[in-house]
Amino acid sequence: MRVLVVGDVVGSPGRKTLETYLKKFSEEYDFIIVNGENAAAGFGITAKIADEFFEKNIDVITSGNHIWDKKEIYTYLDESDRLLRPINYPEGVPGKGYTIVKSRKGIDVGVVSVQGRVFMPPIDCPFKTLEKVVEEMRKSCKIIIVDFHAEATSEKIALGKYMDGKISVLYGTHTHVQTADETIFSEGTGFISDVGMTGSDNGIIGMDVNSIIPKFLTALPQRFEIAKGMERFNGLDIEIDEESGKCKKMDRINLSLEQIEKM
C-alpha cells in the first residue's frame, strides 16, 4: 500500500501548495494523511477548510496543540471520524484521537494523533495512552500510522522505539522543519523525527519574519502573520506491506511549488 503523509499545512500558502501537489499526484496514493492544525491562517482549522481537504481525496486530518484555536471546530470534532485531535488530552474534551478508515483498496487503515509532553502542555502520557489504543486497534487492522506532534527529538525517537513492531509508521510533526533521519526500525516500524511543513519558506516556520523576530528581541507578545512566497511541500511517500503491516520503504518529499508545477 502506498501512503502519502503531509507535514503541517500552514495557512493559505500551504493550502495552495497542497492542492497543487494533490491535483498532480493524489491518484498515485492509496491513502492520504495531512496535518491540518495550522491550516487556518497558521492557527487551527475551520470546518470549511476541513471539508475542502476531504474533497481533495484526503482520508484523515491529524492535528496537535493548535486544534483548539478555532472554537467553531469543537462541534465538528465531535461529529467527524476523520478529523483527529491528539488522543492523550484529558477525558471530556471534544473529538477523538484515532480512527480506522478504508483505503482506496478497501483495506482498513488505523490513524492515531498523539501529542508529546516535553516542552508542551502537560497532558496525559503519550506512551501509555498510545500503547493502550494500539492494542485495541490491532484487533481490527494491521496497518496503523501515528502522527506524534511533539517538540523534543528524544521524545519522538523514544516513542518510536517503544512502539516498534506494534505500528506501521510513527512520524513527527510540530517543529515545521523536516529532519533527515528517516529509517525503518528493527521490528518494521517506519520513523522520522519530523516530516516538515507545507507552506511558505520565506519566513520562520511559515510565519512572516517581521512578526517573529521582534518577539525574540523584546520577549513581548506579537501578532504573528503568515509568510508568503517560496512555498514548499514537505511530506512522506510510504510503502507498507498489506499482510504484515510493516513499513517497507519511506522516502522524504521536499519540493518547492515551482518544482511541483513543472512536474
Rank of each mutant, 00 (worst) to 15 (best):
M1C: 02
M1T: 01
R2M: 01
V3Q: 02
V5W: 02
V5T: 04
V5D: 00
V5N: 01
D8Q: 01
D8V: 00
G11H: 00
S12A: 04
P13S: 04
K16R: 10
T17S: 00
L18I: 15
E19A: 05
T20S: 05
Y21F: 15
Y21A: 00
K24W: 00
D30Q: 11
F31K: 06
I33F: 09
N35E: 06
G36M: 01
N38E: 08
N38D: 09
N38S: 13
A39W: 12
A40I: 08
G44V: 08
I49W: 00
I49M: 10
F54D: 04
K56N: 11
N57D: 10
N57F: 05
D59Q: 03
I61H: 00
T62Q: 05
S63R: 02
S63W: 06
G64T: 03
N65F: 06
D69I: 03
K71W: 01
K71S: 06
E72N: 13
I73N: 02
I73K: 00
T75I: 08
E79K: 15
S80K: 15
D81R: 15
D81P: 04
R85W: 09
I87A: 11
P90T: 14
E91C: 09
P94K: 02
G95P: 06
K96D: 07
Y98V: 09
T99H: 08
V101Y: 05
R104A: 09
G106S: 10
I107Q: 04
I107P: 01
D108W: 01
D108K: 14
V112Y: 03
V114A: 14
G116V: 08
R117K: 12
R117W: 11
V118K: 09
F119V: 07
P121W: 12
P121K: 12
I123W: 13
I123M: 06
T129R: 10
V134I: 14
C141A: 03
C141V: 02
K142G: 06
V146S: 00
D147Y: 00
E151N: 02
A152I: 03
T153L: 11
S154A: 15
A158H: 12
K161R: 14
K161G: 08
Y162D: 03
M163S: 13
M163A: 15
D164W: 04
D164E: 08
Y171N: 10
Y171W: 09
T173K: 03
H174N: 11
H176G: 11
H176N: 09
T179F: 04
D181H: 10
T183Y: 03
I184N: 05
I184V: 15
T189S: 09
S193P: 12
V195R: 06
V195D: 03
G196L: 00
M197K: 07
T198Q: 09
G199K: 07
S200G: 12
D201T: 08
I205S: 06
M207P: 02
S211C: 12
I212E: 06
I212H: 03
P214N: 15
K215Y: 15
L217Y: 14
T218P: 08
T218F: 12
A219V: 11
Q222L: 11
Q222R: 14
E225V: 11
A227E: 07
G229M: 09
R232T: 11
R232G: 03
N234K: 04
G235M: 15
D237M: 07
E242R: 13
E243V: 03
K246R: 13
K249Q: 10
K249M: 12
D251Y: 05
R252F: 07
I253T: 07
L255E: 04
E258F: 02
Q259M: 10
I260Q: 00
E261R: 10
K262S: 07
